[in-house]
Simulated assay, not measured.
Amino acid sequence: MKVASIKELKDELGHRSKEELLDYCLQLSKFKKENKELLTYVLFDSINEEEFIAQIKQEVEIQFELINKKKFYLIKKSVRKILKMIKKYIRYSKKKETEVELLLFFCAQLADFSPSIKRNTTMLNLYNRQLLLVKKGITLLHEDLQYDYELELQEITL
């Protein structure tokens, strides 16, 4: 089966009635958890971005507390899982401020993590890559926000 392009889908959806569009959205939400999460974000969470960010930060804190600290392999696996979750929520939001804030929070949690990530090259590389993404994201923001986030970035740098 050939999958239609985004433009083709957009054009075809433009010709559909409101009831049909509603039915399509509900069908999409039944098939994948990510579709339902995206729909939840668009309908409820996008209205209050600060609350959305606070909820994600709270979830990240909980996930960091649940990490099994016996072996670095398990730590790496858990940290990657947390980062994957954060990236998914960043894709939902599409806002650079949200991306920078969540990645800064992730890096701060990782920097304060014990055992220290300095002892593991893979973890240190993952941390440094996220810092580079934060720096890149900061340059795209308004000057006032750039200054605030630069200060936060200096605080968490190892």
Rank of each mutant, 00 (worst) to 15 (best):
E49T: 13
E61F: 12
L158S: 12
T121Y: 14
L110A: 06
Y41F: 14
N120T: 11
K18A: 10
E61N: 11
D23K: 11
L158Y: 13
L126M: 00
N68G: 01
I138L: 02
C25Y: 10
E143V: 15
N68D: 14
A108H: 06
I117F: 08
Q146H: 01
K136I: 09
Q146Y: 07
S46K: 06
L43T: 02
E49H: 08
V79T: 07
L22Q: 12
M123N: 00
F105C: 04
L126D: 01
E150Y: 10
I86D: 01
L13W: 06
L158A: 12
K70M: 07
S17M: 03
M1K: 13
Y92F: 12
I156H: 05
R119E: 14
T40F: 07
L158R: 12
K2L: 11
M123P: 01
E65N: 14
N48G: 06
T157V: 14
I47W: 09
K96W: 08
M123S: 01
K32N: 09
Y92H: 06
L145I: 06
L132K: 11
R16Q: 13
L74P: 03
F106N: 00
A108I: 02
K32A: 08
Y149Q: 00
L132P: 09
L9D: 03
E20D: 10
Q63F: 13
I82M: 00
I82H: 05
E50H: 10
T98K: 03
T122R: 08
K87C: 05
F113P: 05
E20H: 09
Y41V: 03
E65W: 08
P115N: 02
Y41I: 07
R129C: 13
Y73L: 13
S5M: 04
L9S: 09
I86K: 02
R16V: 12
L151E: 07
E155C: 10
E152T: 08
I62P: 04
T122C: 06
C107G: 02
Y147F: 15
N120V: 15
K57V: 04
L153N: 02
F72S: 10
Q146S: 01
I6Q: 12
F72W: 09
L132M: 10
E50V: 12
Q130W: 00
F44P: 06
Y73N: 14
E143K: 10
Y41N: 04
F31W: 09
R119S: 11
L39V: 06
I67S: 03
E50A: 13
A111Q: 13
I62E: 13
K136Y: 09
K30M: 14
I90P: 01
I90A: 01
A108E: 10
E152M: 08
F106V: 02
Q154T: 15
L103Q: 03
K70D: 06
